[in-house]
């Protein structure tokens, strides 16, 4: 069953010269996929992810997440939709700087109005799953980039989303942190069937992806499925 589907998706930026950042993309992502979207700078990776994540509006075409055509949702409806269906991992981690690791993870569940017991139990479980059980009370400014990105993954998973969108998640990480993060995400994908959709330039991420979609000039030029050992 596809959890993400796009049909003839287009995004044009109208400047002096109109630019088709996304140009007729038809795509289906199945539950449990571990997919990387790759391509050169300006190929439309981030724009495609932003539209799929409900952060940006397409100029044309449709995006379905499950049965919901999110192209039809208002901005306010999209906020609720994102909260309950999409987990985001950003290149710059983007944790809330005044909250601790534990509070950052708990925060999205608070927005979902989950009970205190449920929030605390899931926060503990997720922080342990990303190997940060001992850093729960640290604020982002007291954590390394790798640690912050792991908190971001825990935060993205906290609301039990339909899928996780990760925009260049390893771009700011060293090799060891990248390896750790990929291990954690691959583990979550394999054991809990969490769906991940990345945009990346990073060969280490591409090497771990079971599906690699290549974009050029806003169009899919290659869609490759692979069997990866220990992914």
């Amino acid at each position: 069953m596809s959890i993400i589907k796009t049909k003839n998706l287009r995004k044009t930026y109208y400047g002096v010269v109109p630019v088709n950042a996304v140009n007729g993309v038809n795509l289906e992502i199945q539950k449990g996929e571990f997919t990387a979207i790759v391509g050169p700078s300006g190929s439309g990776k981030t724009t495609l992810l932003n539209i799929i994540g409900g952060l940006d509006k397409a100029t044309g075409g449709n995006v379905w997440v499950g049965d919901q055509d999110i192209s039809q949702l208002t901005n306010n409806e999209l906020i609720d939709f994102r909260l309950n269906n999409i987990g985001f991992v950003f290149q710059a981690y983007n944790l809330i700087p005044v909250l601790t690791a534990k509070e950052n993870v708990e925060f999205v569940m608070l927005l979902q109005k989950r009970s205190k017991e449920e929030r605390e139990a899931r926060t503990k479980e997720l922080l342990e799953a990303v190997g940060l059980g001992e850093l729960v009370d640290k604020r982002p400014s007291h954590m390394s980039g790798g640690q912050q990105q792991r908190v971001a993954v825990a935060r993205a998973l906290a609301p039990k989303p339909t899928f996780i969108l990760a925009d260049e998640p390893t771009a700011n990480l060293d090799s060891q942190s990248t390896a750790n993060l990929l291990d954690i995400m691959a583990d979550l994908n394999r054991k809990e069937n969490v769906t991940f959709l990345f945009s990346t330039h990073d060969q280490r991420v591409i090497d771990r992806a079971r599906r690699v979609i290549t974009l050029e000039d806003g169009m899919i030029v290659k869609d490759e499925r692979r069997e990866i050992q220990n992914a």
Partner: peptide
């Protein structure tokens, strides 16, 4: 920061 918070599901009124 506001953009990130809205992206992860925080309502503007919050």
């Amino acid at each position: 920061e506001f953009g990130v918070q809205i992206a992860i599901g925080m309502k503007k009124r919050q």
